[in-house]
Design a protein around this nucleic acid. Structure first.
Lengths: 252, 252
DNA sequence: CGCTGTGAAGTGGTTCACAGCA
DNA sequence: TGCTGTGAACCACTTCACAGCG
């Protein structure tokens, strides 16, 4: 593995290798998507367990196999000790650094319908490195409402507030029809990461990252597997679990 | 789930290929995950557009490239016409059939906190082939509450109700600590598909499919990209969009 | 002639299996 | 000896490029 020098800014990275090139360790996307899972597992473990963990143990806690975990961690220069395992604290620091969680990123949430309300109140954000600093809605009747101590503002103020509050990530929880317009406003305001809950495709400039969560799609994928399972079990007499399914839970 | 074996029965499939093998078309996972997206795009189009659509057009509407779309559709035996495109109605039927959406699947929701409430009220489920038929919570003070016309029941009733209502899919929106226990109950009740919103790994038998949605993880992945972008722009003087980002929105 | 359907090539990710270090 | 780190084989998916059909 080459890119040992993960840290860009020396002194910021927990592990300070000598001459650190400015290049950011470019991890495979698949690895990036799993790092948060490892981090969660480590935090759970850290509470009650030893200060070191084997790849086998951590892999089990994160729901992956150990070879994959080792390869993933090796990408970040890895902080394991052969014959022993990984130092839990060090590994947490390292992953948090790579994910950029050492700086709490400001998040704004647009659309305070059903889902938006829930997201505004979701404590999993705060506890895992994010702070919702502003709420927006286009509906005048919602503006001014207090949710979790934050006042809902009108979408028109988004541009100004986004800059003021240095918002890095925008969450869209509006109806599909409004989503593209909201995305445009976010992009104009300098936001370069968007989490989209609206069931539609957003078009954004190349430098903006969009991730999409579509709850109905998740169910439809499960529906497919139900359909498949049903068509495999010759004649499903009852509710008994049968047949040879795939050997492990389908990944996210 | 006494699921009648729809899949195989001839006359159920919209397209009746001659000797149709009983084997279920086993599509690549990646394809399955995209079919719902195509379906949504088709529905959007169907409203206002012609009754036929080219791979190029549909691909654009679904946010993928046309080669991928054609390959995906070819897996299901494909219903396009060379030189013309795909028949919108026929394609919708075909995809809905493969996904098993022709039968509305009963869904139950466990955990009526913040997120659970939002999910219970999310109309995107009903409109896309699913019906939430039961709500459960372990908190006695929540039992009896009416949400969207459904009464919250105690988790103890889950086993019985799941069988009565023929529930196919369980949605877990409980705190992480409760999630495994809930999953166990669901599995015991014969549910073979689970959508898990709790930030933890579930262990389930091989025949049960689990999909996980972790909102904080989505943000953490975006955070990584923010971090990366910040480290690439030499010194990010302001909020100007700069640098060469990845050329398209990051997939889900 | 245009667009689908698809072999073939290319890419990225996973798994294996073991070298190498504590 | 035990466990990490990693080349190499393997596999899944994507993309290309074009044959083939309407």
């Amino acid at each position: 593995m080459s890119q040992q020098r993960h840290g860009v800014t020396p002194g910021n990275a927990p592990g300070d290798r000598a001459g650190a090139v400015p290049a950011f360790p470019d991890l495979p996307e698949a690895t990036i998507a799993r790092l948060p899972e490892y981090l969660r597992a480590l935090h759970n473990l850290g509470d009650a367990a030893a200060d070191t963990i084997s790849s086998e143990g951590l892999a089990a806690a994160a729901g992956v196999n150990s070879a994959k975990l080792r390869k993933d961690l090796s990408h970040l220069g890895s902080y394991g000790t052969r014959g022993v395992g990984y130092d839990v604290t060090l590994l947490i620091e390292q992953i948090e650094y790579v994910l950029g969680l050492d700086q709490r990123r400001a998040v704004c949430l647009v659309g305070l319908g059903n889902l938006g309300h829930a997201l505004a109140g979701y404590d999993g954000f705060a506890s895992r490195g994010f702070k919702i600093v502003a709420l927006f809605d286009a509906d005048a009747s919602k503006v001014g409402e207090l949710i979790q101590g934050l006042e809902v503002r009108h979408i028109e103020d988004l541009g100004r507030v986004a800059v003021e509050e240095n918002i890095a990530i925008g969450v869209i929880a509006t109806p599909a029809l409004a989503a593209q317009a909201v995305a445009d406003v976010l992009v104009d305001a300098g936001v370069t990461s968007i989490l989209n809950f609206a069931p539609c495709v957003l078009s954004v400039p190349a430098n903006v990252d969009v991730r999409k969560v579509d709850l109905a799609i998740e169910l439809q994928i499960l529906s497919f597997h139900e359909h498949r399972k049903a068509s495999l079990t010759a004649l499903p007499g009852g509710r008994s679990a049968a047949s040879a399914g795939n050997q492990e839970a389908v990944g996210s």
